[in-house]
Design a protein around this nucleic acid. Structure first.
Length: 426
DNA sequence: TCTGGGGTCCTAGGACCC
DNA sequence: TCTGGGGTCCTAGGACCC
């Protein structure tokens, strides 16, 4: 084995959202905890204790509310401000030890361990211990020669936590074989429900069988994505580490309402609010949008009349000006709005994003005037200083009737001076 | 009453061009 | 009788991820 052979670690926070809540509620360490989606809709994170009680991902909260209470499960509304801040602390801690890190999601990072001194198992335990001591977050770590194998190793570290202490080194061939033989295809990174059903019909049920199919045949029957997965399972790297986070190609803000919207006026407020949020993300990555889409939808559930429609809107020039975009969105909304429905959701999708400067105006296509730039700069400065929604367009309400329901939300302990943790001396 | 949100990549097919 | 071929761009839809 060449010492240069690529080696990756996947660092994964255990039940991330739930663990964030537990950080500031130590009395819940042994108590089953779940975190709910927006509007307290359904379960999106569970501690092992909650899993053991049979609570499933996606269980609608209103159906299991009483059962949760009876079993002593504590439920939280999702608090993304808190999770986002804890996440960046964990990432910075990992980066203090590993030179090259890809932030893969809010609770997972890949680290490139190529060339790091053996034993790597000890190095991984060092990361684990430092994250625990600096942030309080428990993490599991998997090591492999490809990202897909590192993922599989991390999966095993969770499954066999007692034996492994949450660190699995899956570089040896016999270890790979042992694990993949016990791993259903659907647990493999990149194999979802649809593909696993088709694979099963082809007689492939374990990751080991998948690793031993002919990649060319897989490409023909399933496409290049699965082919890469197969190669990665055999130890051939096909997916590289992405250190720099690429700019988004589309920015979407869509949310269910806390209660149904039935008037155009309320829908205008909602669309303006979503545009406010979407353009903040847009300006953060310093892009301009040339086309966007506004959509309104009724709930797919229940037996009320259903309606969903969307419209593409074209601002006069690529822009990040929330006022201009909000006006255009209001015109678009007029086109698709129909009275008589109980709307459950609206959506803003900013598309055709361009970097500033990439777009060159000419005589006939103007570009954004400097006063818009100035105004947006001031808007963002004020909102950084006084909170995300301190300054906003007049269309956006201060207190909306349709706002998200979050009845069980914890404090923003780490990001708001008014919500710090409090102690009482006895 | 009440069922998440935000992304990515790939492919197929149509329009259009020379 | 015989009815091109290759390229690009765009869009819609499907699959996946957390």
């Amino acid at each position: 084995m060449s010492p240069k052979r690529p080696t990756y670690a996947l660092v994964d926070c255990n039940s991330f959202y739930c663990s964030c809540e537990r950080l500031f509620r130590p009395e819940l360490r042994q108590v089953p905890v779940v975190v709910l989606s927006n509007n307290d809709g359904c379960v999106i994170a569970r501690t092992p204790e909650a899993k053991a009680l049979g609570i499933k991902m996606g269980d609608p909260f209103f159906k299991i509310r009483d059962a949760l209470k009876a079993k002593g499960v504590v439920a939280f509304s999702s608090n993304y401000e808190l999770y986002g801040d804890i996440s960046s602390r964990v990432q910075r801690t990992i980066e203090s030890l590993a030179p090259r890190v890809e932030v893969y999601s809010i609770d997972e990072s890949f680290a490139d361990l190529t060339g790091i001194a053996e034993p790597l198992g000890d190095f991984a335990r060092q990361i684990q211990a430092r994250v625990r001591s600096w942030t309080g977050m428990p993490v599991g770590i998997g090591i492999g020669h490809t990202k897909t194998l590192a993922k599989a190793a991390q999966h095993a570290s969770k499954l066999y936590k007692e034996r492994t202490g949450g660190v699995v080194d899956l570089r040896a061939d016999h270890a790979v074989e042992w694990l993949l033989k016990r791993m259903p295809t659907q647990e493999v990174w990149g194999v979802g429900r649809r593909i696993s059903v088709r694979l099963e019909a082809d007689g492939v049920t374990t990751a080991w069988q998948l690793a031993n199919t002919d990649p060319k045949t897989i490409r023909q029957r399933y496409g290049v994505v699965l082919e890469r997965t197969v190669r990665e399972l055999t130890g051939e790297p096909c997916i590289e580490l992405q250190e720099a986070e690429p700019d988004r190609q589309a920015i979407c803000t869509s949310r269910m309402f806390g209660e149904r919207v039935t008037t155009l006026e309320a829908m205008r407020e909602a669309v303006a609010s979503y545009m406010h949020r979407a353009t903040q993300k847009l300006r953060k990555q310093q892009s301009l949008t040339a086309v966007f889409r506004v959509a309104v939808l009724t709930s797919p559930f229940g037996d009320g009349p259903k309606y969903a429609n969307s419209v593409m809107c074209y601002p006069p020039y690529p822009t990040d000006d929330v006022l201009l975009l909000t006006r255009a969105a209001m015109e678009g909304l007029e086109v698709i709005w129909r009275d008589g429905y109980r709307y459950s959701k609206a959506e803003i999708l900013l598309m055709d994003l361009r970097k500033r400067g990439e777009f060159t105006g000419d005589l006939f296509t103007p570009s954004q005037p400097a006063r818009s730039d100035d105004l947006m700069r001031v808007l963002d400065l004020i909102n950084v200083k006084f909170g995300k929604n301190a300054l906003h367009s007049g269309r956006m309400p201060i207190d909306a009737t349709w706002a998200m329901k979050r009845e069980m939300m914890s404090r923003s302990y780490t990001t708001s001076i008014n919500q710090l943790m409090r102690f009482k001396a006895l």
